[in-house]
Design a protein around this nucleic acid. Structure first.
Lengths: 138, 138
DNA sequence: ATGCCACACGTTATACCATTACGCAATTAT
DNA sequence: ATAATTGCGTAATGGTATAACGTGTGGCAT
């Protein structure tokens, strides 16, 4: 009935609509793009989108890409329910695709760096810009 | 005469004004905050600020913080003149201060990760949110 | 059942961030 | 000299995000 998981069953109508819009997209979507996509479903105002996005991000189902002012559906099931402190995203500047990575090595490197300067790490934004393997060959 | 380095001598009037505004600030400034600060010096429109910022970023004298939509003066002399691929910023959520770090270890970790997934890295955005050592003790 | 509370929702207005388009002036290269 | 480049000023517009208001609904303690 629903293509998402148990937590997803608890989403409200607006939250589900936004979630599905993001899941169907091949690239990140801005809030206003989502608004346009969902006009046929009754969306009229930005706040409807932002409120849904806030919750979805809180649930770990959606991530915000700071360098794009845009949002992607989480590709990594383990994010759901838990706030993940360190996720890395690659963003292809050619096709716009985003890949999500969880790397223990990277998390370790971050922690060490933070420790060294006595910085209490709460959350990290790591977004790598470049060309993905697909686009590279063309 | 001028508190900056040789390259800085070549800055235009507007670029110098923006540069000084950022150098004097203890935290990152948004473009519109800079505009307000410089109204007494004749600034009237956002574009005056953005054009100066574009150049300063290009010169490596200023960095943009994606997660804040704001700008900081470079703290690391070596940035000047060269585009640095991987810089890390810590952002204190209490006092708003930013620290800039260049870590070979981190650069290495990034390169390895990118190589593993055959991603051609062009530029990275790394911004750690948390509490700085100063604020932690209060 | 009543009243209260929390929560999602809808709408309007506004604030904040950034760029496009146009024209002018100064500088440099040919 | 003249063309090309660069910086500048102004106005208009586009894109991103939140504040402030009020409505409706469901849970639940009394």
């Amino acid at each position: 009935m629903n293509k998402h998981t148990s937590l997803t069953m608890d989403l409200t109508k607006n939250q589900s609509l936004v979630m599905n819009a993001l899941s169907d997209a091949k690239t990140p979507l801005s809030a206003y793009t989502i608004l346009d996509v969902l006009r046929d479903h009754g969306f009229r105002a930005p706040l409807q989108v932002y409120r849904a996005l806030d919750k979805l991000v809180e649930f770990g189902l959606v991530h915000r890409l700071e360098s794009l002012n845009a949002f992607v559906a989480c590709q990594h099931p383990s994010c759901e329910g838990e706030k993940n402190e360190t996720i890395l995203f690659t963003i292809c500047e050619k096709c716009g695709s985003v890949q999500e990575l969880l790397s223990d090595k990277l998390v370790g490197a971050m922690r060490n760096l933070a420790d060294e300067i006595d910085f209490t790490l709460k959350e990290s934004v790591i977004e790598l810009r470049g060309i993905c393997s697909n686009c590279k060959d063309h």
